[in-house]
């Protein structure tokens, strides 16, 4: 009975903390898997796991809308596109991966170190203001009003950017069509045998 009483004392905040650790413990191995897995398609699927865990983190932060959008757009849409692109170019991903050349290794190291430093400094800095109030219960409405009201210009800019990207994608996909390999039954020979067929038919 004492145990139960102790359990009852665990408040909501600590449950959230525990959930954070669980989700982080899911997300980090998945993220490592994305980088380290040799079968590139499998790392695509692991990416879905990462996005799923991150959307869980959003849920803990009471940001339901963002969490759902995360699942719907990132976890499903983008990853599927990645997977399809990979599949269409290279069905079974058992290629020999060449180790990176010396200087690109160095570049990679420098870039990742700088990135790490930036993220670390950003997290350690004190510029993380915490609002005293709880998130709005219907945060979808708040987001909608913000997008169409205060932030309508950035929203429009983002839309134009997406449109440009879409048009670029279409232009890329609409590559010069080459002459189809399979030609129809050619007109000339068709006509010749047509006459033959006529003759055959009339003979009968």
């Amino acid at each position: 009975m004492e145990n139960l009483a102790n359990l009852a004392e665990i408040n909501a905040a600590s449950i959230e903390t525990w959930m954070f650790y669980v989700l982080a413990a899911l997300a980090i191995p998945f993220a490592y898997g994305v980088i380290l897995d040799k079968a590139i398609i499998r790392s695509g699927f692991l990416l879905i796991g990462v996005f799923g865990a991150i959307s869980g983190l959003f849920l803990i932060l009471q940001a339901q809308f963002i969490a759902m959008a995360q699942i719907m757009i990132y976890a499903v849409g983008i990853t599927l596109v990645v997977v399809i692109a990979l599949m269409l170019t290279n069905p079974r991903m058992d290629l020999d991966l060449k180790p990176a050349a010396g200087n690109s290794k160095l570049t990679g190291f420098v870039v990742s170190f700088v990135l790490f430093a930036v993220i670390y400094l950003a997290i350690r800095s004190d510029a993380w203001p915490i609002k005293g109030e709880l998130p709005a219960a219907s945060n979808v409405a708040v987001i909608g009003q913000a997008i169409t009201g205060q932030y309508s210009l950035p929203f429009e800019f983002a839309s134009v950017l997406l449109l440009a990207a879409l048009m670029g994608a279409i232009m890329l996909a609409k590559n010069e069509p080459v002459e189809p390999e399979i030609l129809e039954y050619s007109e000339a020979s068709g006509a010749a045998s047509d006459a033959e067929a006529e003759a055959l038919t009339t003979a009968r």
């Binding site: 759902m68 959008a69 699942i71 976890a75 499903v76 599927l80 997977v83 599949m87 219907s138 979808v140």
Partner: peptide, 25 residues
């Protein structure tokens, strides 16, 4: 009963296709 109810349902029901692609591959 979530305030984002239908959006949640849509998000959840868009995931199964990942399972199909996964199984197919």
């Amino acid at each position: 009963n979530l305030p984002t109810g239908i959006f949640y349902v849509l998000a959840a029901s868009s995931v199964p296709v990942v399972g199909i692609v996964m199984g197919g591959w």
